[in-house]
Amino acid sequence: MEKTKQPYGTVLIKASHILDFLSSCDEPQSLNMIAKETGLTNSTALKILDTLLMIGYVQKNA
């Protein structure tokens, strides 16, 4: 039986899920909705979103 290789840096995959979800939306989304739709916890989604915000991939709606 062959083992499935786990990718290094699964946070990149999680970030990709967030970006894919946001790109499919016409309006800003709440943290709760982003977490729910991507299967992440609020804290994990927030950490990833903070990084995406820092590098300019997302914007925060005031």
Rank of each mutant, 00 (worst) to 15 (best):
A35L: 15
N61P: 01
I48W: 05
G39L: 06
H17C: 06
P28V: 03
G39C: 04
T10C: 06
K5Y: 05
K14Q: 15
Q59H: 05
I55W: 14
E2G: 03
T41A: 13
N42P: 07
M54H: 12
G56I: 02
D20C: 04
S23P: 00
Q29F: 04
A35Y: 15
K47M: 07
I55Y: 15
T51I: 15
I34Y: 04
S30A: 07
Q29D: 04
K14H: 14
P28W: 04
T10H: 07
T4D: 07
K3M: 13
C25A: 03
L12E: 02
A35F: 15
H17L: 13
K5R: 11
A62L: 09
G9N: 12
K60P: 06
G39S: 09
I13F: 10
A15I: 08
D26G: 14
Q6D: 08
D26E: 04
L40W: 13
K5L: 11
M1V: 08
L40H: 12
C25R: 00
I34S: 03
T44D: 12
G56N: 04
L52F: 04
K5C: 04
N32S: 11
L22Q: 01
M33P: 01
E27R: 11
S30Q: 04
D26H: 02
I18M: 03
T10Y: 08
E37C: 08
P28D: 00
T38Y: 01
L52D: 00
I13H: 04
E27H: 07
C25W: 00
V58S: 05
L53T: 08
T41Y: 09
G9F: 11
L46H: 15
A15K: 02
I13N: 02
T10N: 11
I13T: 09
K47L: 07
L31Y: 06
A62K: 11
N61H: 13
A45Y: 12
K36I: 05
